[in-house]
Design a protein around this nucleic acid. Structure first.
Length: 200
DNA sequence: GCAGTCCTTAGGCAATTTAA
DNA sequence: TTAAATTGCCTAAGGACTGC
């Protein structure tokens, strides 16, 4: 089940997400984003292999990732692939992690990265260019049909119940947040001088 | 051809960490 | 201490596709 929580928009102090010289480059192409558990990420990977890259409608229809929008899935796909542009893999039954590992090894001054994903800097591809890239990627990375056809996605028995549980968890966290905010307000009222010190 | 929907992409914002 | 860098996420814009 997905761990839904009020997470900061960036990494917390404990869980660093900054590449250092002694880190393995490939490690960072499969980082989980807040809101995505290991299982969900794995389910998405399997779903992409089964339905093809970018077939969000089919993935949503399969109910294997209840509550996830195509925008969220697309963002997670970008992380798995290690690149922002996904069009060159559209419809292909590939393992995104393979592309991710390949992209993690690409280095150079001409490579612009954002959030560990290679950003397209070479301008928009023409339809023909895109077609030829898709074909090339199909030849290089497409899994054999007998491999992806037998993929079984983890079945969520009751997606509505999962969403309901997520909602309740969210409500709990909101309550917790309100409590903490109340405590802060109390502390401020009790020690206004110290709060003023902090403001400076 | 037109409208609606789906999907992709680039850019930007806010929070956080790092390094000087 | 603070400016710069990094990260995660959101969203507007535009293209592709589909049904009428």
């Amino acid at each position: 089940m997905a761990a839904v929580s009020h997470k900061p928009r960036s990494m917390t102090a404990g869980a660093r997400n900054v590449l250092r010289s002694n880190d393995s480059a490939s490690l960072w192409n499969c980082t989980l984003s807040p809101g995505w558990t290991e299982e969900e990420s794995e389910t998405l990977r399997k779903a992409l292999m089964l339905f093809g890259i970018g077939n969000w409608a089919k993935i949503i229809e399969s109910d294997c990732l209840p509550g996830k929008t195509n925008a969220q899935m697309n963002l997670q796909l970008q992380r798995l692939l290690g690149q922002q542009s996904t069009a060159e893999f559209a419809g292909l039954h590939i393992d995104p992690k393979v592309i991710g590992e390949r992209n993690s090894k690409i280095q150079g001054a001409h490579i612009k990265r954002k959030n560990n994903c290679i950003v397209n800097t070479g301008g928009k591809l023409s339809r023909e260019e895109l077609k030829s890239r898709v074909l090339k990627n199909k030849e290089m990375y497409e899994l054999p049909e007998e491999t992806w056809k037998v993929i079984v996605l983890p079945k969520v028995e009751d997606p509505a119940a999962v969403l309901e549980a997520k909602k309740k968890e969210l409500e709990k966290l909101q309550e917790k947040l309100a409590k903490v905010q109340g405590q802060i307000a109390k502390a401020r009222a009790a020690h206004p001088a110290r709060v003023d010190e902090l403001k400076v």
